[in-house]
Design a protein around this nucleic acid. Structure first.
Length: 136
RNA sequence: UUAGUAAGCCGGAUGAACGCGGAGGGAUGUCCCAAAAGGCUCUCUCUGAGGAAAGUCCGGGCUUCGCAGGGCAAGGGUGCCGGCUAACGACCGGUGAGAGUGAUCUCAAGGAAAGUGCACAGAAAUAAACCGCCCAAGUACCCGCUGGGUACCGGCAAGGAUGUAACGGUGCGGUAAGAGCGUACCAGCGGCAGGGUAACCUGUCGGCUAAGUAAACCCCACCCGAAGCAAGGCUAAAGAAAACGUAUGAGGCUGCCCGUCUCGUUUUCGGAAACAGCCGCAGGAGGCAGCUGGCGACAGUUGUCCCAGAUAGAUGUUCAUCCAAGACAGAACCCGGCUUAUAGACUUGCUAAGCUC
RNA sequence: GGCACGUUGGAGAAGGGGCUUAACUCACCAGCCUUUCACGCUGGCAUUCACGGGUUCGAAUCCCGUACGUGUCA
């Protein structure tokens, strides 16, 4: 379900997330996040030339996107996310990436400085059908 | 059979589920006051990376520089001959040189008698005497006087030493000593004859000589305007004031001359903007198959096919089966080459050695 | 995606066929000087010029290829 509506595209949007957003990191990627005004989650991917040549970068980006597609129910609406790939993403498989994305999103949800309005959005997302599929 | 060599060809396969880009169609869906168009959503069908898509090393199409002009100069490139091609530095066929037993492979392979440069060493680097060899001829002197010796004037370029390179090499003759001085072979140069479109090859005669380096400058022949799809075009938008210069001026066309075109430059204020959409953009020097011509590169012709077109940039995930267990690697305007990376699989021709008939 | 350029001790750099044993500055190390530190002086820094071929008598330098890096263009 990762259609163009839910993708982050403009350079300006990326910069806003980098400069004013919060972040968490693991071996495979850095996840940045910041509220937006659209009311839907949007995700962008950044895979630099440090990761490898064109074929390797494409593979990493596809794995990240596939993992996000399958875990899309965990992304809070009204937020922009940027996933920056790191060296560890080359060896990671999609199952591992899904787990890491879930962990990272959970960590962001428990961040102490989160505004109260976003806490309210969290249970509403759990009712989404995609989220239930993950339970099974 | 083993080893090798050359050319060509393939680059995991099949099925299922969930997803993504593009094209076309559909919907009683939705955005909009309504309709159309368009967007979004759902759905159906078709389709979706490479032999190198890579490096950007050459060539061309295309676009802009107003049109794309002339001469001279500079700069860059190519360099045996003949073809092929839209073009090329690619490719094909030959010549020469080199490597290999051979099939075969490699070569930027024009000109060094147009001129310049070439460290160190060495006597000397288009130039001749340092060491050395010789006293046959000439002059003078001496002696034991048909002769011998010494000196001078000379002769020589064989040997030594240096060097990448020393004025053809080796053998024999010849000579006072020597020398292409003569001769045999080899190498080089020139003439003539024959063959070949040509590079060149073969034969013969001649006199006997002329280092190497041009991926050093250079000379000769031929070629080249520059930039690049982030080219460029369209859609929307706003200019105003002041100062300077006013045609013997400024700017554009790489330099100069001719030719030709345009009218400017700076500052301040303000607007717009660093954000968009569409076209360019995929039917092409196209692919495949057959036939004809050619040794071949290739050309002609007939039939047939339409085969990615994104713009934060589409091929992934899960499962099953098979085998040799999957290498290098991802289109971004498009073609022709070259170069580099590459697990392996297959086909055909040829060569060498061994064995069998 | 295109275009232009670079690579020389630890760092910055000169040298563009032979005179170079590859200059110079800084850093670092050792010694001298000083009661000590700094300054100064002397010597060193195990490199062969990113890598692989070629041209040449001779290559860091010229030519070809490869690798890595930098700048720039809407």
């Amino acid at each position: 379900m990762l259609q163009k509506t839910y993708r982050l595209k403009r350079r300006q949007d990326f910069r806003r997330v980098y400069q004013r957003g919060k972040s968490t990191a693991n071996r495979a990627f850095v996840l940045c996040w910041r509220p937006n005004r659209n009311g839907v989650p949007r995700v962008g991917f950044s895979v630099s030339k440090k990761i490898g040549k064109a074929v390797e970068r494409n593979r990493v980006r596809r794995k990240l996107r596939e993992a996000c597609r399958l875990e899309f129910g965990f992304f809070a609406p009204g937020y922009d996310y940027v996933l920056i790939a790191r060296q560890g993403a080359r060896e990671a498989d999609v199952i591992g990436l899904r787990k890491k994305i879930r962990d990272a999103l959970r960590q962001l949800a428990l961040a102490p400085r989160r505004p109260a309005g976003v806490m309210a959005a969290q249970p509403a997302r759990a009712a989404e059908p995609a989220g239930e599929k993950e339970q099974g």
